[in-house]
């Protein structure tokens, strides 16, 4: 259990007669948000009372949260053809066209979903959509080598 999550019963708020007038009463479990980005946290080892009320978490953000893994097609940028018009940057729904000093610098594959809008919008064929598996060294599964699934006995 992480140190910032005490699981102390009734850790907050008023208690009995000492309550300030009109004070919001306390609740019978921890309200300290949990940092779900903490890769060392072992939630499986936590007790029920260790979880914050309603499982509220420390506010995350979409920069830290890598979502590019959904992609099946990836845009590949040809810097020689690019005229830096930034139409792709304007249209990208995931802010995944990286830009510096008004010049395109590349593609943020951690967040690009492979929707292909950038390639459609590009007037100079500088963006090419390619199957994701062609962009990796790992071998593609050989369907013929897979065992056959049979029904029944």
């Amino acid at each position: 259990m992480p140190e910032n999550n005490t699981g102390v019963q009734g850790a907050q708020g008023a208690s009995g007669a000492s309550a300030a007038p009109g004070a919001r009463p306390c609740i019978p479990t921890t309200t300290i948000p949990v940092d779900f980005r903490d890769a060392t946290a072992r939630f499986g080892d936590w007790d029920v009372a260790d979880f914050p009320v309603g499982m509220a978490g420390v506010a995350g953000n979409s920069v830290d949260y890598v979502t590019g893994g959904w992609r099946s097609m990836r845009p590949v940028w040809d810097a020689d053809k690019c005229k830096h018009c930034l139409l792709c940057w304007v249209n990208c729904p995931d802010s995944s066209i990286t830009v510096a000093d008004e010049q395109m610098t590349g593609i943020d594959y951690d967040h690009c979903k492979g929707c292909g809008i950038c390639a459609v919008e590009c007037r100079f064929d500088a963006l090419d959509m390619r199957p994701e598996h062609e962009c990796h060294d790992e071998p593609v599964l050989d369907a013929a080598a897979e065992p056959e699934i049979t029904q029944g006995a």
Binding site: R24, I27, T31, P33, F36, F43, M55, A56, A59, G60
Partner: peptide, 28 residues
Amino acid sequence: VGEYVPDDSLLRSTSPVMVGAFANLGPT
């Protein structure tokens, strides 16, 4: 009924929380 002071909230600017997190596989 008193004044309502939430324990945590999306709009608490000093330490906002995330609401509706994914409870992953396993016993969470």
